[in-house]
Design a protein around this nucleic acid. Structure first.
Lengths: 111, 111
DNA sequence: TTATTAAATCGTATATTTGCGATATAAGAT
DNA sequence: ATCTTATATCGCAAATATACGATTTAATAA
């Protein structure tokens, strides 16, 4: 693209899009699932489970962390990740709010 | 990437990722908002509202339609779009189910 | 029929994402 | 101090997404 126009949209629109983007890859959905299922925050476990190289998984984890969907902290020689439920709920709530609210006043779709 | 590995993930993971991807751009969030707010399914209206060229908007609409998030039908010389509430609810439900369910059994995050 | 209008599609430039191997970093083990 | 193990980061190649102008398509208006 010539110029990226993302900044011409509202803050909220950009935030929701960024949240969606963080989940817009099956590998990251799979990572979130694994993190959500375990009581312990695995790290190398994810690499074993996913069909991807270690460096690629690390990159996906970084994206999820940057988006605020997961937390991570170093634990000795390894890293420990887990879902950031607060931000997750915040975004899910915003999506539901945005669309559910509107749905009520516009129940009948015209096409 | 050398080879795209998306098909190595489960069907559900791919579906959720595709849904998220459809919303992973502020322009598409904005389009969904406009469609949700109006009782009538606009078309050229969206072009007027968004800071993007007509062809670009058309492209975004196509993506939303392909992802099943909106419906569209030709109405004379113009096109009419609206939110596909059913598929929207389906996906929102799946996300909530996946993560809310897991959250209950894993309330305490370790980091 | 020809012009107008609305929207889709094509072609193309540029930006971003995805993926991997290689390398770096950092902590614990020997 | 050196080796091992776990993870992060770098550099690069290939794929995909974003954006636009130009063109096409299709329906209504003149």
């Amino acid at each position: 693209m010539a110029i990226h126009k993302k900044e011409e949209f509202t803050q909220k629109e950009q935030e929701l899009a960024a949240f969606a983007k963080a989940m817009a890859h099956p590998a990251r959905i799979a990572i979130l699932k694994v993190l959500a299922q375990r009581n312990e925050c695995i790290c190398g476990e994810i690499v074993k489970i996913l069909p991807l190289a270690q460096s690629t998984v690390s990159q996906h984890l970084k994206e999820l962390k940057n988006a605020g969907l997961i937390n991570g902290n170093v634990d000795g020689p390894r890293s420990c990740y887990c879902i950031n439920w607060k931000s997750f709920e915040k975004f899910m709530g915003e999506f539901s709010f945005l669309f559910n609210k509107l749905k009520v006043q516009n129940e009948k779709s015209c096409c």
